[in-house]
Amino acid sequence: MFQIILYFSLLVLAISLVLFLIRIIKGPSTQDRILGLDCIGVTLVGFIGIIMILQETIAYSDIILVLSILAFVGTVAMSKFMERGAVFDRD
């Protein structure tokens, strides 16, 4: 029973990933695409968490943190590029 629930939640997350992908492809503005990529990162974190429960291991817990940090850094860099036109300020 528990396994069926986990597989069902994996299915729901996969559907939401597809919807985010549609938003990234269709999105009229670049902000929509950035937000879609950030949402994909967060959803992948949940995905890995459920796979970790399914396989009864804690080996992927570092990957979750690395993925969330990378998604965050990437989103901040892209937003700063959108706002300023340059990723790094000179002074």
């Binding site: 850094v73 300020d89 000179r90």
Partner: peptide
Amino acid sequence: PGGGFIGGLMTASAILVLYLAFDM
């Protein structure tokens, strides 16, 4: 899981975050 490579990449991203938030 871990080691010098991924630890170094995370340290680089931490310094990169500092560079993003403040002036160069």
